Computed example of a mutant assay.
Amino acid sequence: MALKKFKNQKGSSTTSRHLIADKLPKSPISEQYRTIRTNIQFSSVDQNLRSIMVTSSGPSEGKSTTASNMAVVFAQQGKKVLYIDADLRKPTAHYTFHQSNVTGLTTVLTRQSLLSETISTTRIENLDILTSGPIPPNPAELLSSKVLDDMLAAAYIQYDMVIFDTPPVLAVTDAQILANKCDGTLMVVASGATDKDSAQKAKELLHSAKAKLLGVVLNGKKKSDGALYYYYGGK
Results as ranks from 00 to 15, higher is better:
L170R: 06
L130P: 04
P167H: 08
P139L: 09
L143H: 00
I163K: 08
G133W: 03
P167L: 12
D160N: 15
F164K: 15
P134G: 10
D128C: 06
D165Y: 15
T166Q: 08
V147P: 03
A154G: 03
A155H: 04
S132D: 05
S145T: 01
D150W: 00
D165G: 12
D160Y: 06
L142C: 03
K146C: 00
L152T: 00
Y159G: 03
A155Y: 08
A140V: 05
P168W: 10
N138S: 04
P136N: 06
I129E: 02
Y156R: 13
S144H: 05
G133Q: 13
S132T: 04
L130R: 15
L148F: 01
I135W: 01
L130F: 13
L130N: 07
N138H: 04
D150Q: 07
F164S: 05
A154H: 05
T166K: 10
A153N: 13
P137H: 10
L130K: 13
P167M: 07
D128N: 15
T131H: 07
I157N: 09
P168F: 14
A154L: 13
E141M: 10
A140M: 05
L152N: 11
S132V: 01
N138F: 08
L152M: 13
T166W: 14
V169G: 02
Y156T: 11
L152E: 07
I163P: 14
A155W: 09
V169P: 04
L152C: 05
L148H: 00
L142S: 01
A153W: 00
D160S: 09
P167E: 12
D149W: 00
Q158P: 09
D149A: 01
K146F: 00
V169D: 03
S132N: 08
A171N: 07
P136C: 07
V169A: 07
V147D: 11
P136R: 06
K146D: 10
D150H: 01
P134Q: 12
A140P: 12
L148C: 01
I163A: 12
P139R: 15
S145L: 02
P134E: 08
L152P: 02
A140Q: 02
A155F: 06
A171I: 05
N126W: 11
D160A: 10
M161C: 09
M151Y: 00
D150C: 03
L148P: 02
Y156E: 05
P134M: 00
F164N: 11
L170P: 10
N126I: 11
L143P: 02
S132Y: 11
V147H: 03
D150M: 11
F164A: 10
M151F: 12
A140H: 05
L127D: 15
E141R: 02
S144T: 02
L170S: 03
V169Y: 03
P137R: 01
I163Q: 12
S145C: 05
P137A: 08
A153M: 14
L170E: 04
S144R: 05
A154Q: 15
I129M: 11
V162N: 07
N138C: 11
S145D: 07
D128G: 09
I129D: 08
D128A: 13
L148G: 00
I163V: 15
D165K: 12
D128W: 12
Y156Q: 06
L127G: 14
L142F: 00
V169C: 10
D165C: 14
